[in-house]
Structure formats: structure tokens, C-alpha cells
Design a protein around this nucleic acid. Structure first.
Lengths: 194, 194
DNA sequence: TCGAAAAGAATGAACATTCATTTTCTGTAT
DNA sequence: ATACAGAAAATGAATGTTCATTCTTTTCGA
């Protein structure tokens, strides 16, 4: 059976093109024809891989978000002490912003825009669970302030939001020192003061 | 002279309609015809007030941003002690998010999207100067951590970014307690630990 | 009565999606 | 091995719609 002959490379090229073009021009200012051209594919071909433009961008979002969270939790495991765990995750997220800046920018745009379906948004959130768990543990151990779950949740969606601001629309690169400072600031804001 | 016979009400209605529609559908998914209809005006009339669609959204952005900063600094003056000044500004910003949530949402979308001209973006940033000055003072007095100016700047663009996340795309309203917690977290992240 | 302001209809370009063909792949029979 | 049939994949060219902007005419205020 030829159930999956469609080229995964072509699909990836389409996703990459979508990210790059949406970053530069925004969702609605990015024509399917341009995405097709950048992916070296006919416009009609896109519809073999995705239902329509909305579906393309939804799936791109979910894929990038999954990539983001996988990256964030790569070096973390649940047996780590809370503070160390937080540090490990935080640093990975910062690294993601820097090394995968196109992906990070794309996520920022999606998360602040009516561009993505609510369902896909929910889907994208799921993978952040380990961070929420870590925080629950930190609160239980008295290491993390008893912040409202709702705030922690907001924080979890974008713990680096101010780094995002620093990175997103300015093109300046953050230094290691700045990253360390940013981490310290973030940790200070949630840890219980001794 | 009839240099300004054009109705300021009509202009305002157009700006309001732009904010509301862009919040719901995004810039490019908002047709001029719809903006006109919501403002009870002919599409052609928009062009008496604005050069084109881009100009309309740029001017809307600048106006909302000015409104935001005016609100933020309303109760602040430069003679206040640093910590108190920070608190006063922060609380006003939080209030803005809550009371003027449509405006806040609009700004979040503009700031994370290629929707606004770079020039207008710069224009919008200018009014944040008092906060930068406050921080310079705080650092000089040893009250605020010696964070990189660049980070403080990023923070200044959106000191409430994580509150934004909490408010923007979820529709849940934050409680007073949560706001207090959020303020404490923000202050902890930048103050010098005693 | 004149000039600005406003209106509605018209224009032309851009775009998402579909259609009718062509190309490529794969499994099978020789 | 080889050729071929059938199906999936890919294509470029329509199609029909939507929309920003402009044009011509009408309304309004002084």
C-alpha cells in the first residue's frame, strides 16, 4: 500500500516557508502562492498536505510549539530539586529564543493574534504541564511563593515574556551576562525570600 | 477658516472601530468596508481622515500607545521615592490592562506583529522615558539591581508582559489579590535583595 | 452659492481554492 | 531484470470572490 507517499520533505519545506513568511509579513499578508514558491512547490500541492490556509498555519503552530517545549524540557527531569529544575528549564527556554529565534518569533506572533484556532491554542498549551507540576512541587516545599495558580499558569505560557520583548522586534542579540541577569530576575520574582 | 471642519467624532469612531475589529479578526482580516460600517461612515470617508489602511492602523497604534503611557504615569511624579514610584506606575499599568482591556489587547497584538510601521513603533516607545529614568535613579541609589540597560528597556516596553498573557487571550478576569501578587513578583525581580 | 465633506457605486488587483492534465511511483506479470 | 497499468502526487492555469482605493455625484454648512 502507498498510504504515505507524500514527501515529508515537502511538508517540512511548507512549514518552514510559512514560519519565515508569516514572521516577515503576518498571516494574512502571506499568500499561499508565495509560500508555495518558497517551498519550491505548486500552490495546488499545498492542498495535498493541508486542508486550507488556516489548517496550514494551525499545524505549523502546533509543530513549532511542540518543538519549543521539547527543547525546554530536554535537560530536565522530575527528580531534580525545584530551584535547579527551574534553572535548567529557564536556561533552555532562553537558549531556544536565541538559537531558534525564527520559531520563537513565530510563537510570539501566534500567541498574541487571532491567527490561530482556539483548539490549536489549547493543543499547544498541553505540553507545558511539566513546568506547572514543578511549580506545584515548589509551592508544596515552600520554595516558591504561594502565587495564584492562575498567575503561574500565565507565567508558564510565557515565562520569558520580557526576554521575548528584548529579542522579538529588536534585532539585537542578548549577551550571556544579560541572560544570567534575566534568569536571576525571574527566579527572584517567584522564589520565597529567605 | 475651515481648516478643521472634519468631525473629530467621526475620526474617533473610526479609531474605535479599528481597535475592536483588529482585536477580533486581525489587521489584514479586517476590511475597510467593515470599519466604515462600524463607524457609520462610507468607506470613502475613511480616506478623508487617513491616507490608507496602513496609515489608519499606524495612527490608531500611536494614539492607543499615548493613551496607555498617559494612564501609566498619571499618578506618578519624579519626586517620588523609587520603590513607591515603581509601585504607582505598575499598579496603573495593571489597571489599564483591566479597565481598558481592548486597548491593551490591541497594543499586545501590534507589538508582536509586523502590522505597524517601524517609525510608528519608535514613536510609540518615546513616551516610556519616565520609567527608564526611574530605573536609572533606582540603580544609582542601589535600590534596583544593576541590570543591563537593555533588559530594563525590554522590561519597560512591557513590564507587565506576564500579566498580559494572563489577560489577553483568556477571558478570565484577574482578582485584586492576584494583582498584588503579580506586583510583588515584579518588584522582587528587580529590587536589590537586602 | 460655493467649497468642503460625505456618500455609494465602480474599478482593478490580489488571492484562496479548484480543475483538468501531466508526471512519478509502485507493484505485478512477463 | 523489464515493461506496464493503475493510482497517487504534482502541476499550472483557471475561477470566482474579496477588498483597498478611486470616481462621480450629492449633501451640508457658512
Amino acid at each position: 500500500m502507498a498510504a504515505l507517499q507524500k514527501s515529508i520533505d515537502k511538508r517540512n519545506a511548507l512549514i518552514q516557508a510559512t514560519i519565515e513568511l508569516v514572521n516577515n509579513d503576518g498571516f494574512h499578508a502571506t499568500p499561499m502562492s508565495k509560500i508555495a514558491k518558497m517551498a519550491s512547490v505548486s500552490p495546488a500541492t499545498i492542498y495535498l498536505y493541508f486542508d486550507n490556509k488556516q489548517d496550514l498555519v494551525n499545524k505549523t503552530y502546533i509543530e513549532v510549539k511542540a518543538c519549543y517545549t521539547a527543547y525546554a524540557f530536554e535537560t530536565y527531569d522530575e527528580t531534580m530539586p525545584v530551584e535547579y529544575g527551574f534553572k535548567v528549564i529557564w536556561k533552555r527556554i532562553a537558549e531556544f529564543k536565541i538559537k531558534e529565534s525564527a520559531n520563537a518569533l513565530f510563537l510570539a506572533q501566534c500567541d498574541n493574534t487571532p491567527m490561530i484556532d482556539e483548539a490549536s491554542r489549547q493543543e499547544g498549551i498541553k505540553h507545558l504541564q511539566p513546568l506547572l507540576d514543578l511549580w506545584a512541587r515548589g509551592k508544596k516545599e515552600g520554595i516558591i511563593k504561594p502565587l495564584s495558580d492562575y498567575l503561574l499558569y500565565a507565567y508558564a505560557i510565557n515565562p520569558l515574556s520580557f526576554l521575548m520583548m528584548a529579542q522579538n522586534r529588536g534585532s539585537i542579540q542578548l549577551t550571556q551576562l544579560e541572560l544570567d541577569q534575566a534568569y536571576e530576575a525571574a527566579w527572584s520574582s517567584i522564589k520565597v525570600c529567605k
